[in-house]
Structure formats: structure tokens, C-alpha cells
Computed example of a mutant assay.
Amino acid sequence: MKTKIYIDGQAGTTGLQIYDRIGQREDLELLRIDEDKRHDIEERKKFLNAADIVFLCLPDAGAIEAVSLIENPEVRVIDASTAHRTAEGWTYGFPELSREQREAIRNSRRVANPGCHATGFIAATAPLVSMGILPKDYPLTCYSLTGYSGGGKNMIAEYEDENRAEALGSPALYGLTLKHKHIPEMQKITGLACPPVFMPVVDDYYKGMAGTIMLHNRLLAGKPTAEQVCEKLQEYYKDEHFVSVLPFGTNESRIYANTLAGTNRLKLIVCGNEEQTSVTALFDNLGKGASGAAVQNMNIMLGLDEGCGLE
């Protein structure tokens, strides 16, 4: 019997990307609501309760509403919105955090898919905190460069308009209040005592992300060199399929944010010297940063190979 899948918010960027990754799979049955009934609560409720797994690709308020409509206790949910990433009763959907995290996802009925910027930050930071290298009270800073697809349909239309403003051809800093919506999960999942100072940047390319943390080695436990930090991260992720760490010194003189566009892979690149270290997470904001991660979590929840439909 095929697993029944419903995507609530199937017309959005993430919903379409999930459909692209699973639409041709023979082990799944996709339940498709009529286009003119996508906003009909009773019709949505019917589909939400008929599925084995529901993907929520909605604004936060819509995701909260969708969960309230689910009465069937057997329905499992993967929420791609921000609504439940720090909520009690929800499992954070980043399996590479630990063996225990992967097992929690496997057994969970409510999984919150990570935010794109948060994915890179957590991949670089959480292991260093867990291993005791990065103190929990470290005053951490981070910047994250993303393609414009991360802004959804409106931003995509803005950047692809043939009469667009000339300024869109250059990088744009945003989240200038330093209260970006991904910060709560960035702090909670890494275990930091205080939120990082985080600055996102959007640029004139479609997809791909490079998120970077910067460290003073003298403030780290044991005062490791950048190469030693790299070795520690390599050891942490050595058994992972989708997350890897490049050998120290093998990276080129430049890091291009769209290098892993179209994949579900995330690569950490450690640069620096004896005194300072940078760790950059390179991945696709629509892949490992959104829909690819959601499909990976679904595969785990179904007991399948994590890479099914993602290679």
C-alpha cells in the first residue's frame, strides 16, 4: 500500500519543490486538492486527515490553523514554516545533529523543518558547542548569503522583472533590526546562552546559500587552530551522507554561494589560521535548506533510505 502524502500549500515555492522531488515516486500517492478549493477549510480538513504524512508549506498562521484541523491521530506532519521550530512537542528536523536526533525524527508525529539560514548556522555551530569547543556564552556573529528564491514568489518576481530596479543587481543586507525570524531556533538548537548577531544578505542569483560564523581562537576551549577546528568537525560528521567537511586547506581562494545549488548536500569549509577561524556552510537554500530537508525527514519517518528521491 502506498503512503498517502498531502502538501498543504502546494502552490508555494517550497511546496512546488517538494512535489518536484516526490511527484514521480512509485511508493507514494500524492493527494491533490482542486485549485479552486485550496482555501476551503472543510476541503483542506478532509485532505489533512486523509494523508499519512502532511507537508505544511504555509505562512506561520496558516500552519498553526492546519495543525488544529487535524483530528486523525495517525497523521504525521512536517511543517516547513517557522511556527513550530521551537515549540514543545515538535521534533527539530535536522537529523545530522546526532544519532538521537535522527531517531527522534524517525519516531515523531510532528517534525519542524529547519529554516534555511538556521540550517547553515546550526551545522557549523552545534557540533562545536556539543564538543565543548565553543563556549555557550560566546558572543557569536554570523552572516548568510542567499539567492533570491528564498524570498518566495514575490521576491522571485521582483528580481526576474525585466524592468526591475538597478539596485537589485547588487547584494542587499536585510534583517537590519537583528531580529530575523530564524534566530530563536538558531539559539535554541545550538544551546547558546544568548542569540547570535545575525545578518542575512540576498543577492542576484536564484538559489544557493553560504552561511559563515567567525571565531577568535583564543576564546575557544583549548585555543585550537583553524585546522584543528576543521579536524574536529570532520570527525563529528564522518558518518553522514549529506553533510561533509572539506579537508583544511583544500578550498579555493573564493567560495561561491551557488556551488551546491540543485543538491541536498551541505559542505562545511573551515578557513583561517592559529588566531582566527571561519566556518562556512555551503548548500542550496531550496534543497538542504528547505524542500530537500523536508523530503529527507519524510524518508526517515517512513524508515526509508534518506537519499530516496534526493540524489
Results as ranks from 00 to 15, higher is better:
Gly120Asn: 06
Ile133Gln: 11
Ala112Ser: 15
Val111Cys: 00
Pro139Tyr: 04
Thr141Ala: 12
Pro139Ile: 05
Pro127Gly: 05
Pro139Ser: 13
Ala118Leu: 04
Gly132His: 02
Gly132Arg: 01
Phe121Gly: 13
Tyr138Glu: 06
Val129Gln: 07
Arg110His: 08
Phe121Ala: 12
Leu128Cys: 09
His117Cys: 15
Ala112Phe: 11
Thr125Phe: 05
Ser130Ile: 07
Lys136Ala: 15
Met131His: 01
Ala124Asp: 08
Gly115Ala: 12
Leu128Thr: 12
Val111Glu: 00
Ala126Arg: 09
Met131Glu: 15
Arg110Cys: 02
Met131Trp: 00
Ala124Ser: 15
His117Gly: 09
Gly132Trp: 03
Thr125Arg: 03
Ala124Thr: 09
His117Gln: 08
Cys116Val: 01
Cys116Glu: 04
Phe121Ile: 10
Cys116Gln: 05
Gly132Glu: 06
Pro139Met: 11
Ala126Ser: 14
His117Asn: 13
Pro127Leu: 03
Ala123Asp: 03
Arg110Lys: 11
Ile122Gln: 11
Cys116Met: 06
Pro114Leu: 09
Pro127Phe: 02
Val111Asp: 00
Thr141Phe: 02
Leu128Gly: 10
Ala124Pro: 05
Thr141Val: 11
Ala124Trp: 02
Pro135Gln: 03
Ala124Leu: 06
Lys136Arg: 14
Ala118Cys: 08
Ser130Asp: 15
Pro114Thr: 12
Thr119Ala: 10
Ile133Gly: 09
Gly132Val: 04
Asp137Ser: 14
Leu128Trp: 08
Ala123His: 04
Ala118Gly: 07
Arg110Ala: 08
Ala124Cys: 15
Ile133Met: 14
Ala124Ile: 07
Gly115Tyr: 06
Val129Ala: 03
Phe121Trp: 11
Arg110Ser: 06
Gly132Pro: 05
Ile133Arg: 12
Ala118Met: 05
Leu134Pro: 14
Gly132Phe: 01
Thr125Ser: 09
Gly115Lys: 03
Leu140Lys: 10
Ala123Cys: 12
Thr141Cys: 10
Met131Asp: 07
Thr119Leu: 04
Thr119Asn: 00
Thr141Trp: 01
Pro135Met: 02
Gly120Thr: 08
Thr119Ser: 14
Met131Ser: 06
Ile133Ala: 07
Ala126Met: 07
Lys136Ile: 08
Ala112Ile: 10
Gly120Arg: 06
Leu140Ala: 09
Gly115Thr: 08
Cys116Trp: 03
Asp137Cys: 02
Pro135Ile: 01
Ala126Gly: 06
Asn113Gln: 11
Thr141Tyr: 03
Thr125Gly: 10
Leu134Glu: 13
